[in-house]
Design a protein around this nucleic acid. Sequence first.
DNA 1: AATGCCTACAACCGCTCCGTC
DNA 2: CGACGGAGCGGTTGTAGGCAT
Length: 228
Amino acid sequence: MGRSPCCEKEHTNKGAWTKEEDERLVAYIRAHGEGCWRSLPKAAGLLRCGKSCRLRWINYLRPDLKRGNFTADEDDLIIKFHSLLGNKWSLIAARLPGRTDNEIKNYWNTHIRRKLLGRGIDPVTHRPVNASAAATISFHPQPQPPPQKEQLDKPPRCPDLNLDLCISPPWQDDDDEYNDVKPAKKLQRGGVCFGCSLGLQEECKCISSSNFLGLRAGMLDFRSLPMK
DNA sequence: AATGCCTACAACCGCTCCGTC
DNA sequence: CGACGGAGCGGTTGTAGGCAT
C-alpha cells in the first residue's frame, strides 16, 4: 500500500496560473495566513494541488519579494554562498532578502554559471577550469588494478572534495557523539558562523552562541556589510 | 512574414526531512 | 521505534518571448 497522493490529479488544474487564481490564493492567505497547504486549495476554492499553491505563493505572490534584476552585490553573494553551500538554494535564498530559492536557482543556471565559465571558473568546484581538469586527471593518474568487491560497493572519493555540508573546526571529527548527529543538526551545533567563514563579520560570537549560518539569529542581511 | 533556435523562468515531479501518533 | 503524512527542497521540464535567418 503506497502513500496517498498529495492531491486528486484528475480534479486539479496544471500549468500557468490565471489572474483569478492568484487573487483567490492571495485573498485566502491574507485572511487565514500560510500553512496547511494540503487543505488550502479546497478551502480557497482553487482547483490546484497544495504543493502548487505553496510554490506559487512563495515564488511569486508573497508581498516581500523583491523581483527585478539581481544586483552585482547579489551576484557576488550568490557565488560566495554557492562556493560554501553548493546547491543548497534554500539556504542561499534565506540570506538574500526578497529572493526565493527557485529564483536564485534559475538565475544561477542561466546567468552565473555562464558568467563563471566565461571567466574560466568551474561553477561546481569554483576553481579554475584547468585546475579542475587537472584534479580530475590526477584522481586516477595511473591504470588501477581491478577494484575489490567492497570498493565496488562504495562510490569513489575524491581526496580534494569534502562532500559533507559542514564547515567546522577539525576537532569535531573526533567527537563520536557529534558524528551521530544528522548534518542539518550539525549546522546548528556550533562551529564558525557563515558570516565569519566568508570574512564578512568583524566581531562575532559565533562559537560561543552556536550561531552557525545565522540559523539561531534568524536572517542575516549581508548586504549591509562591507564586501571584501 | 514565416520559421527555427535560444534564453529565461514559472511550474511540476519525485524525493527527503521532520513532526506526530 | 516504526509508520504515516505534511512540508520543503532540488532537479527537471514546459513554454512564452526574443532574436536571427
